[in-house]
Design a protein around this nucleic acid. Structure first.
Length: 470
RNA sequence: GCUCCCUUCGUCUAGCGGUCCAGGACGCUGCCCUCUCAAGGCGGAAACACGAGUUCGAUUCUCGUAGGGAGCGCCA
């Protein structure tokens, strides 16, 4: 039997990391078993669902590379089907019309709470014979009154709940529109989903859904409830934790490979392995190895992975992602070194592409003021001879490559009888305006000949203009 | 309140009764390397929530306790 999994988000916002991981697990489980991955949009809540959210979810999945084989299916397109099944249940006496007002069911709930009971519908209309006029009824599922619902969760193990804890849930509103617990079951049956992977906030819904499966005479799928993802502080993930939307991570400079790798290791592991390519994930992942415990999102580890991928992925590939950030930052890549060269030099110095863009600005556009502290410390009178010497040397250099540049700087240092620090730091400040940059040869290489000579000239002016030292 | 679920270093995790005075990774930290910042190399500190059982033997099994989470909608 082929494994069929699905991701079924409701389009009420962007794709957040928790949903993304659920989607990833579902996707990988399908891939690992040569199965089918389905995308279904659960948009039955007309009030809160928006086309923008649908697009945001699609964008997020696309950015992560989670390709679905079937869908997207929209529940709003399937209302006739739900109505059909509702009628079937009604006809078979497995569901009934309920004329209770919202007010009544709410007061019943309050009363039960007050008495220390679990709030549930009291079944007043369950065996009602009369048909009140002028009231549009809801349809309730006739849940079994006794017995236990037992299922074996692929990540949680055996879970059991008594039917006495469950009540007759509403499956259709007065206007005929279906409700969640009902549509999922109908859809998962119709789409032949064999493994339902979803957040563990659905554990408590599962028994009532199982009862519906049974009433429909359908075979049960497997269930796998994955734990939720918490914020850095262990509290439920929310906006105040910063980035929660997948696309926000792109904006912040993360590579999809890094986020994917980070997410797959949240709740799942394969021995001590930390780095997984998508192909490895597809080959090694198993939902049965997923943990039961909720895990906290740790941005520092994501940073580490992101840097790892910036360093190890082909520079051209990273450059492709970097280009997007350059565009966002209003930088023209044509005004400086090729982006793949930039990546090769900068990758092990920054955590994100956004950071790379920021620290690389000086290679594509002029910088304003010299950093006051750095200039004061390194652009002093004593540095003047070194800068003049290096400028003269650079002007005549044949091939503007790191190797030659390093040689040139070394030779000038030797000729002047000073150590590297005495020449590299002033030169660095002259070239980029601050005391921090890649090794001096790479820095020169990135800045380029004309720009380097011009900036050294400017630094010499600065030295000339500064007040005599005490 | 009721029901269900969870509990190994700060964090992500390995462990599936003895191999564990608990292993890896991020982070932190010491040293080395060094033209700055990184990266890298070699070290270090850091955990089985607690209490009873079961067993020759429990991190691993059972039950309690404590703490945490989720659900209890005509939301999904």
């Amino acid at each position: 039997m082929t494994v069929r999994t699905r991701f079924a988000p409701s389009p009420t916002g962007f794709l957040h990391v928790g949903g993304a991981r659920t989607a990833l697990f579902s996707y990988l489980q399908a891939r690992a078993n040569r199965g089918v991955f389905i995308l279904r949009i659960e948009d039955t809540d007309l009030e809160r669902s928006t086309p923008e959210s649908v697009q945001a979810i699609l964008d997020g999945m696309n950015w992560l590379g989670l390709e679905f084989d079937e869908g997207p299916f929209y529940q709003t397109h399937r209302f006739p089907r739900y109505a059909e099944v509702t009628q079937q249940l009604l006809a078979e006496g497995k569901a009934y019309h309920c004329y209770c007002s919202k007010e009544r069911t709410e007061s019943v709930r309050e009363e039960q709470m007050k008495r220390g009971l679990k709030p549930r519908y009291d079944g007043l209309c369950r065996d009602r014979a009369d048909v009140p006029a002028d009231i549009k009824p809801v349809v309730r599922f006739r849940n079994p009154l006794s017995g236990d619902v037992v299922f074996n969760d692929r990540v949680r193990g055996a879970i059991s709940i008594s039917n006495e804890e469950l009540d007759d849930l509403v499956i259709a509103r007065p206007d005929g529109s279906p409700t969640y617990n009902f549509t999922v079951v109908v859809d998962d049956i119709d789409m032949a989903v064999s493994l339902v992977i979803r957040g563990d906030d659905h554990i408590n819904n599962t028994p009532r859904q199982i009862n519906i499966y049974r009433a429909l005479g359908a075979e049960l799928p497997d269930f796998a409830h994955v734990p939720m993802i918490l914020g850095d502080d262990g509290a439920r993930l929310s906006k105040r934790h910063g980035a929660v939307g997948v696309m926000q991570y792109r904006d912040d400079g993360y590579l999809p490979q890094a986020l994917l790798n980070y997410l797959v290791r949240l709740g799942w592991s394969h021995g001590d392995q930390e780095i997984f390519s998508l192909d490895e994930m597809k080959a090694l992942f198993s939902i049965d190895d997923v943990n039961r415990k909720a895990s906290a999102f740790n941005t520092e580890k994501l940073d580490w992975l992101n840097q790892h991928y910036m360093r190890t992925l082909p520079a051209d590939e990273v450059a492709g992602h970097l280009l997007w950030h350059f565009t966002q930052a209003g930088l023209d890549p044509a005004q400086g070194p090729a982006l793949n060269n930039l990546v090769a030099v900068q990758a092990d110095r920054v955590k994100t592409l956004r950071e790379m863009t920021e620290v690389s600005r000086v290679y594509y556009a002029d910088f304003g003021e010299l950093d006051a502290g750095a200039a004061k410390k390194h652009l002093r009178l004593v540095a003047e001879p070194a800068l003049r010497a290096i400028a003269g040397r650079l002007a005549g250099i044949g091939v503007w490559e790191a190797e030659q540049l390093e040689k040139a700087v070394n030779e000038v240092a030797a000729e002047l009888g000073v150590n590297m620090g005495k020449i590299a730091q002033p030169l660095r400040v002259a070239l980029v305006g601050t005391g921090v940059s890649p090794s001096i040869d790479k820095t020169l290489w990135l800045v380029g000949r004309e720009r380097s000579l011009h900036r050294i000239e400017r630094a010499l002016e600065y030295i000339g203009n500064r007040a005599p030292e005490a």
